[in-house]
Design a protein around this nucleic acid. Sequence first.
DNA 1: GTGAGATATTTCAAGCCTAAAGTATCAGAG
DNA 2: CTCTGATACTTTAGGCTTGAAATATCTCAC
Lengths: 158, 158
Amino acid sequence: MVSVPLSVIDARSGDKERLRLWIRMLRTTRIVEAELRERLKRDFNSTLPRFDVMSALYRESEGMLMSDLSRFLLVSNGNVTGIIDRLVADGYVVRAKRDGDKRTSVVRLTPSGVEAFERMAAAHERWIAELLGGVDTAEVHRLSEMLHAFRSNWEGEH
Amino acid sequence: MVSVPLSVIDARSGDKERLRLWIRMLRTTRIVEAELRERLKRDFNSTLPRFDVMSALYRESEGMLMSDLSRFLLVSNGNVTGIIDRLVADGYVVRAKRDGDKRTSVVRLTPSGVEAFERMAAAHERWIAELLGGVDTAEVHRLSEMLHAFRSNWEGEH
DNA sequence: GTGAGATATTTCAAGCCTAAAGTATCAGAG
DNA sequence: CTCTGATACTTTAGGCTTGAAATATCTCAC
């Protein structure tokens, strides 16, 4: 007689595998992130967080609220304030008080910001193609779908 | 007559897919990391970097050099110095000047550090099982192998 | 043994990041 | 109108992170 159902044993061993998966995912992400950080600094004297912010603003040419940015980028409000401050200092972004609500400020890229972002984005895309080039094209699709499913599932619950 | 070989077109479209994959991977990692960070803070008043350092030291009960730690964790030397400083202040880690070489210091967990890490590690494993529970067990294995292959490939080249 | 370059670690300045507290504004109940 | 709670944003304290400069020590050719 077996004292533990097989399904439970399966779940347990699956959990070990999940832990291993997480560690590998974290490590892979860090390796690629470190490489991107280094290249952004070297070629554009910029950073990943700045790139992320500019990328979000590029897609929303009308501009975004600070709170939209922090929600979209999954970072805190105060964090966005600092990054935007530095982008404004560099002339890549402007804060505007447009609508009636005096609490909000709409931030958007300046023409100079658009130009800078486009150059960075082109390089970024080439770098990713190079860095992930070792992953088989068929597997890229599978993997991408899995991660998308994970995230949809997560957001459904939270 | 086709001006661009099909293989090139394939490579191009695969690159777009790789970019999407990277963005999804980064986002998934951030979601899970944010959740872990929050729980480590809430339940153990600790952080992810501290957990990583303690995890490395736990596996090497004889202790590690600062430079071994920074190499293993993929972070800079100066970074490790700060994290170890705080762990020492908390009584979880000791720096020892053992061998002949007066430049190096061997850091290792104290009994209190071992005890604290074991409690955190148990919770951490449960959390990962919960957070990645939505991923099918068969896919976990596939995914894990892919990432392992990616990293081996990367380290072969760098 | 001694001087040059290599190695181990720390310090520093600057930027990223969070949670929590602070400021200003808004919206709605009464 | 005015009070109350919600919302948008900034500020602050503390920790993480890097790359580069600073210290200290080691190694080894001479």
